[in-house]
Amino acid sequence: MTEKPSHTVGGQSNRTWKKPPFISNPVVRYSLMAGIAVYLYWAFSSLPFDWARIAEGLPRAGRIFGGAIPPNFERSDLLMKGFKESFQIAFLATLLGVSLSVPIAVMAAKNVAPKPIYLLGRSLIIVSRSFHPVIVAILFVAAVGFGPFAGILTLTLYSIGFVAKLLAEEIEEIDWGQVEAMKSVGAGYFKTLIYGVFPQVLPRQIGLSMYQLDSNLRASAVVGIVGAGGIGGTLMNAFGRYDYDFAFAILLLIIGIILVSEGISGWVRKKIW
């Protein structure tokens, strides 16, 4: 409580301060930094860059964008057909995927499924999640041939992987009291599910379905690239034939439709919540 200290500042030996480093152990710190540097060098030097081809890239990019502007919407029948098919694929795959995901989610929820069933449900989900939809699509195309059917199968699997996983997590977090109440009035397993479990997860399920419809629409544009139907195939063809103005038109429409669908799906989810 005295004034003294303020006069003795200058007399005190200078104390230094440095910001404590992000990682306090210097060995770990420096080896981490060295490791990152070595990795970056290794990665860059091991990758096969075709520099001659890349050097042509900028003028080529100029040609491509020059050819793409203005976008060409003249072949609207082809556009319509492609987008219509994408919608159909997305819609049917969402319906199938969401309906199948309900039993699978029940199987994969620890609190309502017996252990062996639970493991089966989990592994179904893991299998349907393990591959990128494009890889799944290419396999289905190989198995069942080109066209929207392969697309529907792909996106159904994709929907199961996502919706069933989140729905199972939701079921695992329900209020158990409601289930006990249904059991205590003498309801059987399925009646308990319908009265004690489903009402609790229904809003979530509708939200997930809307979300999945939106992401299936996005994905349907992509699986077409490997031959599973929809606008993606049209886009791939346009690129293959150097029809950059048509390709650009498709791209713009894809972006527009994705934005609209994102908006609608967000709006519906907000209303239901």
Binding site: P48, F49, D50, R53, I54, E56, G57, R60, A61, I64, V134, R218, A219, A221, V222, I225, L235, M236, F239, Y244, L251, I254, I255, I258, L259
Partner: peptide, 18 residues
């Protein structure tokens, strides 16, 4: 809004495969 694989399509057209 543009999927990775569509971006890839575009960049393959520009810089070639790789």
């Amino acid at each position: 809004s543009v999927n990775t694989i569509i971006w890839a399509l575009l960049f393959v057209a520009i810089f070639g495969p790789g």
